[in-house]
Design a protein around this nucleic acid. Structure first.
Lengths: 189, 189
DNA sequence: CAGTATCGATACCGAAAGTAGCATAACTAG
DNA sequence: CTAGTTATGCTACTTTCGGTATCGATACTG
């Protein structure tokens, strides 16, 4: 009965350090970029030992991915208004990618994933799939169509961030919403 | 008169190694990914010394960018048929990003650029600007609008490649073309 | 108190970006 | 043919970073 709350295992308990470590990760990546945000620096910023980081996450890429999953959080959709949910999902993505460190972390783990199938698997299942599933349900679209939607929204926002170093301006986000609204509306023909 | 062909300077001439080095770069990046494609390996694959690489390009990122500029080449547009040119530009991007090594190289230099303003400058001016200028002329659109177009096309294609490790399927490229054709057509209202 | 598992700290390994130095090859000018 | 100049190949080196091993200290259970 109490199994879920108190397994009562021996040894020193492993307290949650996710909040400190994730905050330190985003702060460090934001200041130094993905390449120069070393695990040493992240650990120091979080006030923990580097070895503690590696006891909890198997690699730098896995740490960053977990950090992204935590930072994005649940999609704010209602399920009642398809048009509003479509816009909400895009604005949600734009806001998150505009937060300090998120885009740099995303692009970095992305690059590592191209040469590392295991990391790509983590990225795809842990970060993309939850949103894909929710969006398929809320938008009533096929898996292929939702994956296309995610490619367009996230890809566009990341490309802008990478090329300019700044988040996409509101006017362009609105243009993105308008374009996708047209494309994902039921055909009138 | 002959200044352009024969400056007749003393010393050992610097023959062009671009072809060999660029080919070796794409081959190596394709096989090992951006991170594991070391300059040592690229130099070995090209049959030159690593120091020769660094005498011609200031950093790994600059080498990759130059390689991308060379690989993409000129945009195949006619300037006479706006709709056809729009589709041609997208298919051109999709084909290039699908070529072995291109996507990995692109994503890698992208990541480095986020934490390196100098590299971002190189990427923006040497790779993006030429296409932006041609597209502004051919499509008759504003700079802002063309930059948005590039963000959507390249961002979408790169995101798909990064998430799946495979180029975007033709059906999805066609969907991308259709969506953008609608968005960039003159309003009927 | 005994047993167990975590933490911090230090040291360490291997790989990779980038640099320095030098002998040598290739070319020009006399 | 010789002297001067520049590029190349090669080796060695420095620095940085991802990741691992080890060990004493700490925090919990029974």
């Amino acid at each position: 009965m109490a199994r879920t709350t108190t397994p009562a295992k021996p040894g020193r308990p492993r307290v949650s350090l996710d909040a400190e470590v994730f905050a330190a990760t985003l702060r460090t990546v934001h200041e130094l970029g993905y390449t120069h945000a070393t695990v040493d620096r992240i650990a120091a910023a979080a006030g923990v030992a580097k070895t503690t980081i590696y006891r909890r996450w198997p690699s730098k890429g896995a740490l960053i991915t977990a950090c992204l999953v935590d930072a994005f959080g649940p999609l704010p959709v209602t399920g009642t208004d398809r048009t509003a949910d479509l816009a909400a999902a895009i604005h949600f993505g734009a806001a998150k990618i505009g937060e300090p460190g998120i885009a740099a972390a995303f692009a970095g783990v992305f690059t590592d994933a191209i040469g590392d199938p295991a990391l790509r698997q983590i990225l795809s299942t842990q970060l993309q799939d939850p949103y894909r599933i929710v969006l398929q349900k809320v938008l009533g679209e096929s898996e292929q169509r939702v994956l296309f939607f995610i490619d367009v929204v996230i890809g566009t926002l990341l490309h802008r961030m990478g090329m300019t170093g700044e988040p996409m301006a509101d006017a362009d986000v609105d243009a993105l919403v308008a374009m996708i609204q047209r494309d994902f509306s039921p055909e009138v023909a």
